[in-house]
Amino acid sequence: MAGQDKSLRSSLGRVRGLGSAKDGTSHWWAQRTTAIALVPLAVWFVVGAIAHAGAPLAEVKGWLGHPVTAVLMLALVVAMFQHARLGLQVVVEDYVHCEALKIASVLAINGAALLFGGFAVFSILKLAFGG
């Protein structure tokens, strides 16, 4: 890409390779790995949800209570909240320029993802273990 003489980074910064966020490419990679996981999981969930459209609770419980469904639902929910959290963080970092508001927003996003993810995981386990 750009020649070394065009780079704005110092030699030390370049050799460390961690960038201004100090975590290198880990955020970028986590966004991609969760994206790859969500391709089959999202397709599987959409097919399952359509198959149970408007179904009574007993039927839905039969589906969600199945061990395979429960494990796939757990994988979906964890990957989904992680992917959403990372994506929303980038959106906030791009558009919110007030540093305090930016940090507060990212904290709120992470907290909400953790809490709602917790609710979802708990519900899936409750359904799986015969709640």
Binding site: M73, F81, G87, L88, F116, F122, S123, K126, G131
Partner: peptide, 22 residues
Amino acid sequence: GVALAVGTLMLTCWLVAAAAGE
């Protein structure tokens, strides 16, 4: 992506409701 992040809350509501009862 932002719209789907909001949608995760609806999915959570649906799961919680299914676990909560009829």
